[in-house]
């Protein structure tokens, strides 16, 4: 896949970012279905069965159906994208993802013109996911994007990290990656993608609408009620590493700011 051709120039320049190590990326995860501790997913996610894996694509699409992960992969061009990853908890990493553009998948199944949003759902397997016995959130985990956000060339479905299959704790076999939004928008282990007309529910937004908005774009000027979003701690840069300033739209302002023209980002946070 030709990454240089597919990406705007400034995003390609992100490739000069120093990625975190595979060990850091795969041992520091928020995946509450496997426990609320950062190391719980790495410890527990091995129980997840990912083969076979079926993704239901339905709603306002021309070709709805249950697609096997292998079928989807055979239709897509996998490329590497090195993206910043900013968690709502004010830490960040740089991750070399492998995957394909979500737009390619959506175009393949054919999006109907009245589709305004895309809804996503994570697998819910109480037998394999020890974390779901506790009602931290209202399972299954769901997320949503506006259709223009979903079709944006930066938005991808990740299937790998560092050229290896994406580890289970990071959302195997296939997860969303929206680099200008807080990490929780990038829903893991996707089993359902629905094209819909109304804004779909998003788990954290439902759980605490005051703290987590539907959009959840990275924005140093709009604080989380319980902590500042102005700066972030870059994971892996040592115990005494200085906090770094958080960039508007996580550094992807040039590419995505236009999506939100005329919107008050304090209201639509």
């Amino acid at each position: 896949g030709g990454i240089a051709g597919a990406l705007p120039r400034s995003a390609a320049a992100q490739n000069s970012l120093e990625p975190n190590t595979f060990e850091e990326i795969t041992n520091y995860c928020n995946y509450y279905e496997f426990g609320t501790g950062k190391e719980d997913p790495a410890r527990n996610a091995h129980r997840l069965t990912i083969d076979p894996w079926t993704v239901r694509i339905d709603g306002l699409v021309d070709k709805p159906g249950d697609y096997s992960f292998a079928d989807i992969l055979s239709q897509m061009t996998v490329e590497e994208r090195i993206y910043r990853f900013r968690c709502v908890e004010a830490w960040s990493m740089v991750i070399p993802w492998n995957g394909f553009e979500l737009a390619d998948l959506l175009n393949w199944v054919g999006v109907q013109s009245n589709a305004k949003y895309v809804a996503f759902e994570t697998a819910l397997r109480p037998d394999e996911m020890p974390g779901v016995s506790s009602r931290v959130l209202d399972w299954p985990y769901v997320e949503g994007l506006r259709i223009d956000e979903a079709m944006h060339p930066l938005t991808m479905m990740a299937t790998g990290i560092y050229g290896k299959d994406i580890p289970k704790q990071n959302g195997a076999p296939m997860r969303l990656v929206v680099p200008w939004k807080y990490g929780f928008k990038s829903i893991k282990s996707v089993v359902r993608i629905s094209l819909v007309e109304e804004e779909p529910p998003a788990s954290w937004n439902v759980a605490n609408p005051r703290e987590y908005g539907f959009y959840s774009n990275v924005n140093p000027e709009v604080d989380h009620p319980r902590w500042s979003q102005a700066t972030e701690r870059r994971i892996g840069s040592g115990l005494f590493a200085k906090r770094e300033p958080t960039l508007m739209f996580n550094g992807y302002e040039e590419e995505v700011a236009g999506l939100y023209d005329g919107m008050d980002l304090r209201t639509f946070f």
Binding site: E23, E24, N27, Y28, K38, E39, W91, R233, G236, L239
Partner: peptide, 8 residues
């Protein structure tokens, strides 16, 4: 672990 400051 990966984020010692927070852990401490």
């Amino acid at each position: 672990g990966i984020d010692p400051a927070k852990r401490i």
